[in-house]
Design a protein around this nucleic acid. Sequence first.
RNA 1: CGGGGCGUAGCGUAGUCCGGCUAGCGCGCUUGCUUGGGGUGCAAGAGGUCGGGAGUUCAAAUCUCCCCGCCCCGACCA
Length: 570
Amino acid sequence: MKWTQTLIPTLREAPADAEIVSHKLLLRAGLIRKLAGGVYTFLPLGLRALRKVEKIIREEMDRAGAIEVLMPALQPKEIWEQSGRAETAKDVLCKVKDRANREWFLSPTAEEVITTLAAGEINSYRQLPKNFYQISTKFRDEIRPRFGLMRAKEFIMKDAYSFDTTDENAMASYHKMYDAYKRIFARCGLQAFPVEADTGVIGGNYSHEFMVPAETGENDVVYCEACGYAANIEKATSGIPKTASREVGAAIEKFATPGVVTIEALAKEPYKVPANRQIKTLVYIADSKPVLILIRGDDQLNETKFAAKTGAVAVRPATAEEIVPLLGAKPGSLGAVVNVPADVKVFADERLQGANDMTTGANEDGFHLKNVSIERDIKVTAWFDLRTVSAGEPCVKCAKPLKIRRAIEVGHVFKLGTKYSEALNAMYLDDTGVRHFLVMGCYGIGVTRTLQAIIEQGNDKDGVIWPLSVAPYQVCITPLAVAPESDAMKLAEKFYAELSAKGVDVILDDRDERPGVKFKDSELVGFPIRIGIGEKSLAKGEVELKPRNGALQAIKAEDAVEAVMKLING
RNA sequence: CGGGGCGUAGCGUAGUCCGGCUAGCGCGCUUGCUUGGGGUGCAAGAGGUCGGGAGUUCAAAUCUCCCCGCCCCGACCA
């Protein structure tokens, strides 16, 4: 490609609405342009890089035995009602109506469609296993689009769905995808690692996310350097000890705490009740029903764990207006000892199991209770791990201190089980003629997000640093004179032809620009290899080879093509 | 949706409090000259319904009200 023939609108300054480095560089390097919030056009260079990521994904999915299909973006509402997700996923669904007033959803994912397909086309164990994948545009009515391609309303996703006869076989399919994902991200030049994950609204019971470490990520990952344990903070547990049990003390005692509505205030003079001897009582509305959650005073509730453990779909903190009629007191004086309506469930964090000599609210404004023994004095409906892990806590596997860091989620693998095959009646006959539900798994990669993650991880002050595998062009030839008859341009054309013939993706910067402009642009865009051709070195029969992330070297013109091939082939 | 901020030329911005604008600057763009190995210099130019609407006023980018869009923080997720 000649630079003047394509469109590479580089920007000297980043548009003000870009915040993080990868978003700025996507715009500055002329890879994308915004049409509206969370909606972007891919320009020629951005599209080339995107296609390369897709190619890697296709090759690895094919290698892993998956087969490519293309499902519709327009999905009838009915199948979503059948799976139950018309309700549970309603907040992210982009809805459209046709002229007959029929309602459609723009695909945010395709479990319903593929399961409907499988229900019709897969009848026998002889057809299994099968793993279908597609790379397509997905739509989510994001609450808040953010960071360019990182969280967009419209984005490109690779989604795959496996169908197996048994749980055991489904695990094998899962592990094939898990391994394929590791290869995919490695080939994209990404440092991505799998972590245990919550399954969320998609459902299922076993899941890993592939994370790219980055301060700008939207996830917190808990990990152990000693044993390799790693989990999303929404899922992570630690080996932190339960609350120490003391002598079973005196009976409960109510005491006045005027104006004290926080854990911190109760920990200070004159009360001096340490946070780890307090029971924090939270009121949540889980699927429209109020529930109480008990957490130790120095712990934080993990809402994802709470929803996952209780099976709730929609959870939110109750408002003060909801709490007062329920418990008779405002937040700050709440407890689960007295005055809890019989139909209100009480979920307590396991760390409180056996705790006594605790202090908690009295359900009376301005009063607390002490000498509370949780098992003796509170009717707990169920105990769960509900707390959020903090850095430094002992690893659940090896007891070494845990660390936490931010990361970008680029892929997610789930074992789904029979949730969708049951809802959409997808069954097969086994070798004895008995019907079973298909056992499913699903596997997503955010393709456009992966592209941005590559930039987020590969950049410096001058611009993008593409890995060779996904660079829009691998080589940028930069003649410093562009008149057709000039020696520099003649040589540039020769390199261009030779490298192209060898299958190298090469761009020739034929713009009549000053050297500084060309160098700056090639570094901003981030081509992995630049061949500089100028009079000074040409006089010595040399050209300049400049890897984007390495030192410039002078090289004999006749050796240049070979040297480039060496860099490309490693 | 809650909280915060911002909308002035393709991009970055000054001016907005305190009305007087014929809207200024840098980058980019066009033309000419210049320069020719790290965003060259000089000159001339094109480009703006100051997000939209209504109002106040002799006069509105500036004040008031309504609407729209965008960004950031939170809840959602590939």
